[in-house]
Design a protein around this nucleic acid. Structure first.
Length: 804
DNA sequence: AGCACGCCGACT
DNA sequence: GTCGGCGTGCTC
């Protein structure tokens, strides 16, 4: 018996199955989808069994046996193995990358180099003895000194030491120590009798145990509740009154929370219609995709909940994706309220162990609904009834490193596999999805009304050029300042939005015009006042704020551009009574801090919530009556064909935060380009007109959805090398693709250097290019066999979410 | 000769 | 990706 194994080595010639013989002892239990340890070259690596067979073409002298079978129950299902092949072809990634992305990181291997003494009689040099500290094996870390490493090398050659690779699972199943109390009361009484009266504490414990015979209690709880000590308990255990056992437990990220149960809401006519279409398709076991276009506050979530309820009735499972779940506890709570313990939650805020535990609950079928961010689309359910992508237009559904998959595509693939519907929900659908819905590839469902008929908020667009002309140089227009003041007087809450964190976006010398740039990246450093430092938002480089210009030594350096920190100060200056909460990457780094800030705001502990994009989504507080967008222009002028779409989406999303309940909402949008159609259509909440206008632009410039786009990026430490190989790539594409494919570039990327690597890119635009996968595959081969050695890095992104 | 360093090929 | 093997070229 032989197993085809994909080994955990991401390299070009390795990206195929290797055949291993299956030792007798594993033959009855091994299955495809299991993880194995295999010898590979002169080391041990982790691998995934992708197939089993009785014969192999591998010559006898090359056949090696599987070393260890790591899973009795395979971690990958047949579906996942099929999905892997598809992902590999559609994102051009290594098969091992596609396999690993389906699993929680706890199941990935951690490799350790173990140095062991084989010849214990040999005399070891002082430095090596210090390393071993009397033990016969130690972990060899890569950061040891060069001299030590070369001495070790010599000792290995002389067969005094050996180097071994150990494979460790990153995180284990959590076990808790349980006290299993003897079930036989008479036996306990007997033990109680025999304990000497000197051991009073032990006697007390045993006496208590007589009343709890046969019970199984967490050790830590026993000690705590009986006010006793571990030493006393050990004594009791020795006498046989109880035994110690390990029990598997789940880490529970929601342990300290009580969640109320909620009933279903009654539906509006529109909601009802949408739901019945979805359920109809569900009953037919159709792999249909629905685009649920519902204005903000129109009750999309209630439609999701009731559709899931339907699938739960049949014991089927549901996957719900949300953009980045830790940002919207309000959303997860709604699912927990409705479905209780049937819900698993997966998001980046969980620890490796917590994610692993949620994953196991899903795999074992202990939960039926998973609510999670992008990677939750790979949830190991076996009988899916429904898949939902909320805010389907969000860029976070596209992974921006290998495998560069889009969760929407995976969702549709899985829906075909399980013959179940997919719901894509959004107030501002992506142009791609809306175009597909109009063409009939997706079914369009519309929610145009809010359930309690609340009006959409009034949006006023303020021309900041006029403000400047009239002598208002502050960041608040008169209109916005008035609106804020009014809310403060009335005790209502507001959200202020600015898409830029930090204090000032650049530091400029007023004598020579020098802008302080990151030493590693071609981008200006952002000033952070709290730590009094400047930071690069791309590579994380930090340094002291210079006292003088690094170029001309002038002391006339000033801070320009506005970030959230500066707004916070300005609010304090203009509205001294206002209580402000700032929410951006800098204030939410700690685990649970999102929730903490939102809870404070929800409890009315602040008047103003000030933040970056992360406050645009999902917030639902009844007392918010004003949303202020301090500068609508930041996303508008990006060098990306989706800039207008992103701006429209963002404005619509933030506007939707105001007046969701009984109180009427107002939105003030400040901009230097008030006439731009993205801003104008957002003012009137008019998605359809925006769509039509934007589609005309896309058509004119041949961008998606009229074409498909592939982004190829080349990076190298040397500019000339980068440009040279970018040209090679572009030329090669021009020679090999049909002349209906347009190849743009190569051009320097808009941030031309990041982390000391120069970046060039080219863009392929095509309508129909049947040879494209092959041509790209060949380009990858040239790259991996030749260019990679010269230090060139190339990435290919099919349907990129941004071309910057 | 002894070794550091870089390049190449193999890995079932 | 990571190892060993091998050639080159430097140093004692």
């Amino acid at each position: 018996m032989f197993a085809e194994v994909i080994v955990d080595v991401a390299a070009y010639p390795i990206d195929r199955p290797f055949d291993y013989s299956v030792p007798e002892m594993f033959q009855t239990i091994i299955e495809s989808g299991s993880r194995v340890k295999v010898p590979f070259g002169n080391r041990q690596v982790l691998g995934f069994v992708t197939a089993l067979k009785s014969d192999t073409d591998v010559p006898l002298d090359k056949q090696k046996p599987i070393g260890e079978l790591l899973d009795i129950e395979p971690v990958l299902t047949e579906e996942m193995l099929a999905m892997t092949k598809w992902l590999k072809r559609h994102t051009l990634c290594y098969e091992i990358d596609a396999l690993q992305v389906m699993l929680p990181s706890a199941l990935r291997a951690k490799y350790e180099k173990i140095l062991r003494i084989v010849d214990s009689n040999a005399e070891l040099p002082q430095s090596v003895q210090a390393l071993f500290q009397g033990k016969d094996s130690v972990e060899l870390k890569a950061d040891e000194s060069k001299e030590l490493l070369s001495t070790i090398k010599k000792l290995i050659k002389d067969q005094i030491l050996v180097l071994e690779t150990a494979i460790k699972q990153k995180t284990a199943v959590k076990k808790v120590r349980m006290v299993q109390i003897e079930a036989d009361v008479n036996r306990l009484k007997e033990i109680h009798e025999n304990v000497s009266n000197q051991a009073k504490k032990q006697k007390d414990v045993i006496k208590w145990m007589i009343d709890h015979a046969g019970e199984r209690i967490i050790l830590a709880d026993v000690i705590k509740n009986l006010q006793t000590s571990n030493a006393v308990l050990q004594g009791v255990l020795e006498k046989g009154a109880a035994t110690l056992e390990l029990e598997e437990v789940y880490r529970d990220p929601y342990a300290d929370r009580t969640i109320d149960v909620s009933k279903k809401h009654s539906l509006t006519d529109e909601q009802h219609l949408a739901l019945s279409e979805i359920i109809h398709s569900y009953d037919q076991h159709e792999a249909a995709t629905f685009l649920l276009h519902g204005i903000t506050g129109s009750g999309k979530t209630e439609v999701y909940l009731q559709a899931i309820e339907r699938s739960l009735k049949d014991q089927k499972e549901a996957i719900v994706l949300v953009p980045e779940i830790s940002l919207t506890p309000q959303m997860t709570n709604r699912f927990k309220e409705r479905f209780g313990s049937l819900v698993a939650v997966l998001h980046s805020g969980l620890s490796t162990g917590e994610k692993y535990d949620e994953w196991r609950k899903i795999k074992r079928g202990e939960v039926k609904v998973v609510v999670g961010a992008r990677s939750a689309i790979f949830a190991p359910f076996q009988n899916i009834g429904l898949i939902i992508l909320d805010e389907e237009h969000e860029g976070t559904y596209k992974q921006d490193d290998s495998p560069r998959y889009h969760a929407r595509d995976v969702a549709i693939w899985r829906s075909e596999y399980h013959h179940c519907p997919v719901i894509l929900g959004s107030a501002t659908p992506s142009l791609e999805s809306y175009a597909r819905a109009k063409k009939g590839n997706y079914s369009l469902l519309t929610l145009s009304k809010r359930p309690r008929e609340q009006a959409l908020p009034e949006v006023s667009v303020i021309d900041m050029r006029e403000q400047l002309k009239n002598g208002n140089r502050s960041m608040f227009s008169l209109e916005l300042a008035d609106a804020i003041r009014l809310r403060l007087e009335k005790g209502e809450q507001m959200v202020l939005f600015l898409n830029r964190r930090g204090h000032s976006s650049f530091v400029l010398c007023r004598d020579c015009g020098t802008v302080v740039e990151c030493p590693n990246c071609d981008i200006s450093m952002t000033y952070h006042r709290h730590q009094e430092r400047i930071k690069c938002h791309y590579c994380g480089e930090e340094s002291q704020v210079p006292n003088s210009c690094p170029q001309c030594s002038s002391e006339h350096i000033r801070f320009f551009g506005t970030g959230t920190q500066k707004v916070e100060e300005e609010i304090a200056r203009f509205f001294p009574t206002a209580r402000v909460l700032r929410m951006d990457v800098d204030t939410t780094r700690k685990k649970g801090s999102h929730e903490h800030i939102l809870k404070q705001f929800g409890d009315g502990k602040a008047d103003i919530l000030l933040g970056t994009q992360m406050i645009a989504k999902g917030l639902d507080f009844p007392n918010i009556t004003l949303v202020g967008v301090l500068s609508a222009d930041t996303t508008l002028h990006l060098a990306d064909f989706r800039a207008a779409e992103k701006t429209f989406q963002l404005l619509t999303q933030v506007s939707g935060r105001a007046g969701r309940h009984d109180k009427k909402g107002e939105v003030v949008v400040q901009t230097y380009t008030p006439d731009h159609y993205a801003i104008q259509f957002a003012k009137y909440h008019d998605f359809i007109s925006f769509y039509n206008q934007e589609m005309m632009n896309r058509k004119q410039f041949a961008y998606p959805p009229f074409t498909f786009v592939v982004l190829i990026q080349i990076t190298h430490e040397d500019v000339l090398m980068t440009a040279e190989y970018a040209h090679k790539a572009a030329n090669w594409l021009r020679e090999n693709l049909s002349n209906t494919a347009e190849i743009i570039g190569p051009t320097a990327s808009s941030i031309s250097r990041v982390q000391n690597r120069y970046r060039y890119q080219c863009l392929i635009k095509y309508k129909k290019e049947p040879m494209l996968p092959d041509v790209l595959q060949q380009l990858i081969r040239i790259y991996r066999t030749d260019w990679l050695k010269k230090g060139i890095l190339m990435s290919i992104d099919l349907n990129p979410s941004s071309i910057m």
